[in-house]
């Protein structure tokens, strides 16, 4: 059976071909995917929050939990297993608004904020975003095939797609 590495909530990991890497149940969370198109090395982060500035305890900061810290960390890990910056591209999925409310509470529109923060973090290190499936009000499970670079996206109500 094909080796599939699982990335948990607020976690990240990297893997080389031919393995796959996946994360399940992305709602407002965002799956950030980096892929080296030449070396066939892939990485995935499952972030929950846009910015580590939100953290109320900086002592044991989990860098994989925030878009602004997860992107550079994932990038470093990609380089450490043989990826080259000029060959790395990014894809994003998730960032939904699962529930609709009439409220001014900013925390309830966290999905779109997670997407914006992920894009900003990618552009800060100069990694091109080549595809995304973000927003809406649906959950997503994503799986990167490191042989092809295709990101498979499964939803509960809208079937399967590839980006």
């Amino acid at each position: 059976m094909m080796n599939v590495v699982k990335v948990r909530m607020a976690d990240l990991n990297t893997i080389g071909a031919p393995a796959r890497i996946r994360t399940t149940g992305l709602g407002s969370c965002v799956g950030i995917v980096l892929f080296d198109v030449k070396q066939k090395v892939g990485g995935m982060a499952h972030i929950m929050l846009p910015s580590s500035e939100i953290a109320k305890d900086n002592q044991f900061l989990n860098r994989a939990k925030y878009a602004d810290t997860a992107v550079p960390l994932l990038f470093e890990k990609m380089l450490s297993i043989g990826a080259s910056k000029e060959n790395i591209v990014a894809k994003l999925a998730g960032g939904s608004q699962m529930f609709q409310f009439n409220t001014s509470n900013d925390m309830l529109r966290i999905g779109p904020r997670n997407v914006e923060a992920s894009k900003l973090a990618l552009s800060n290190i100069g990694i091109p975003l080549i595809a995304e499936d973000t927003g809406g009000n649906i959950g997503r499970t994503i799986e990167l095939d490191t042989q092809t670079g295709i990101l498979h996206i499964k939803t509960a109500n809208l079937g399967v797609k590839e980006i």
């Binding site: 607020a10 149940g25 953290a55 109320k56 959950g139």
Partner: peptide, 25 residues
């Protein structure tokens, strides 16, 4: 007022972890 969704359990419940996630894992 309640809001309802029919979707993946992880996608639904993770929405309830946002406040906690600011201080812990």
């Amino acid at each position: 007022v309640p809001s309802m969704a029919i979707d993946m359990v992880g996608a639904i419940i993770s929405f309830g972890l946002l406040q906690v996630s600011q201080i812990s894992d």
